[in-house]
Amino acid sequence: MSVDKDTVMRVARLARIAIPEDRVLPMAEELNRILAWVEQLNSVDTSGVEPLTSVVKMDLKRRADKVTDGGYAGDLMANAPLSEDNFFAVPKVVE
């Protein structure tokens, strides 16, 4: 499984990170080195082994159906790069 330039571009697109043209190939090489290194896992026999789902053995915590939160739109907007009338504002999304 070798990562080529197209794969880097596809993955970067999925991750929404712009990669400048001249960084694509070096990034492919970096990723390939790391992936080649982690491929040592293939030598572990994991047949019949369940993937780990959680390290702590406990029941999932549950909350009562009560309204205990919200009502502070102003606080939420305080850190927003752009907001109007308590809406977060983003470049127009075309559907």
Partner: peptide, 21 residues
Amino acid sequence: RAKLFSGAATAFGAEPNSQVS
């Protein structure tokens, strides 16, 4: 009354971002 993973309300037609945790 409240959301799936938070305690914010679910009522219809509230002011923008007022039912957000």
